[in-house]
Measured scan of single mutants.
Amino acid sequence: SEIVKHAEEALERGEFVRIEHNGRVIEIRNEEALEELRRWVEK
Rank of each mutant, 00 (worst) to 15 (best):
G14C: 11
V4I: 15
E42H: 08
E9R: 12
R38H: 03
E8G: 08
L37V: 03
E2Q: 13
V41H: 04
R39E: 08
V41G: 02
I3A: 07
L11C: 07
F16Y: 11
E2D: 14
E15P: 01
V4W: 12
A10V: 05
N22W: 13
V17W: 07
W40M: 07
I28V: 11
S1L: 13
I28R: 00
R29F: 11
R29E: 07
L11K: 02
L37E: 00
E32A: 13
K43R: 13
E36A: 13
I3W: 12
E2I: 10
K5Y: 04
V17K: 03
A33G: 12
L11H: 03
N30D: 14
L11Y: 08
R18F: 10
E8K: 15
I19N: 00
R39Y: 08
E31G: 09
R18Y: 09
E36S: 08
E27V: 13
V17A: 07
G23S: 03
A10F: 06
F16C: 14
G14V: 02
L34N: 00
R18T: 14
I19Q: 01
R24I: 11
R38G: 01
R18W: 12
L37K: 00
W40Q: 04
E2M: 13
I26P: 00
E9K: 11
E31I: 14
V4G: 02
E31L: 15
R13K: 08
I28W: 02
N30P: 01
L11R: 02
E35W: 07
E36I: 12
I19G: 00
E27H: 10
E32I: 08
E2A: 12
E27K: 05
H6M: 15
I19E: 01
R39G: 07
E9T: 08
V25E: 05
W40V: 05
F16E: 05
L34I: 07
E32L: 09
H6A: 14
R13H: 05
R39W: 09
K43Y: 14
I19D: 00
E32V: 08
R13G: 03
E42Y: 12
R29L: 12
N30Y: 04
E32Y: 09
G23L: 02
I19T: 03
S1P: 11
H21A: 07
L34V: 06
R29Q: 08
I26W: 15
I3D: 03
S1Y: 14
K43S: 12
A33C: 12
A10P: 01
I3L: 14
R24M: 11
R13E: 02
A10N: 03
F16S: 08
E20C: 15
K43W: 14
I3E: 03
E35C: 10
G23A: 02
L11G: 01
E12F: 13
I28D: 00
F16P: 06
V4A: 04
R13T: 04
N30R: 02
V4K: 01
W40T: 03
R38C: 03
R29A: 10
G23H: 06
K5F: 05
R24W: 13
A33H: 11
I19K: 00
H21T: 06
E32G: 07
E20V: 14
I28N: 00
R13A: 05
E8Q: 15
S1F: 14
V25I: 13
I26G: 00
E15Y: 08
R13P: 01
R18C: 14
N22H: 13
A10Q: 06
A7Q: 01
E42T: 12
S1E: 11
I19F: 10
V4P: 02
E27A: 07
K5I: 06
K43V: 11
K5M: 06
L34Q: 00
R13W: 02
L34C: 02
R24A: 07
E15I: 11
F16M: 10
H21K: 05
L34Y: 01
L37A: 02
A7W: 04
K43E: 13
H21D: 03
R39I: 11
H6R: 15
R18H: 07
E35V: 07
R29S: 10
G14Q: 05
E42W: 09
I3M: 10
H6G: 07
H21L: 15
I26T: 04
R18N: 06
N30G: 07
V17P: 08
V41S: 04
K43P: 05
E27G: 02
G14D: 04
G23K: 02
V41A: 06
E2V: 10
A7P: 02
V4E: 01
A7F: 04
V17L: 14
G23I: 00
E2H: 10
A33K: 06
L37F: 10
E35L: 08
E12G: 14
F16I: 13
V25M: 07
I26A: 01
H6C: 14
K43C: 11
I3H: 06
E27Q: 06
H21V: 15
E2F: 12
V4H: 03
E27P: 03
I26C: 09
E27W: 15
E20F: 15
R38P: 00
H6F: 15
V41W: 09
E31R: 15
R39Q: 12
F16N: 06
F16H: 09
W40N: 02
V25W: 12
L37Y: 07
H6T: 11
E15T: 08
E35I: 08
N22P: 00
G14N: 06
V25Q: 05
G23N: 06
R39V: 08
V4C: 04
R29D: 10
E8N: 06
L11P: 01
E12T: 12
G23F: 04
E20M: 13
I3G: 03
N30T: 12
N30H: 06
H6L: 15
A10H: 07
E42S: 12
E35P: 00
R24D: 05
E2K: 09
I28Q: 00
V4L: 15
K5N: 05
V25S: 05
E31P: 11
I3N: 04
F16R: 06
W40S: 03
W40L: 09
A7I: 08
R18G: 03
V41M: 11
K5W: 06
R38E: 01
H6I: 15
S1G: 09
R24V: 10
N22D: 09
E31F: 14
N22A: 12
R39T: 08
I19M: 05
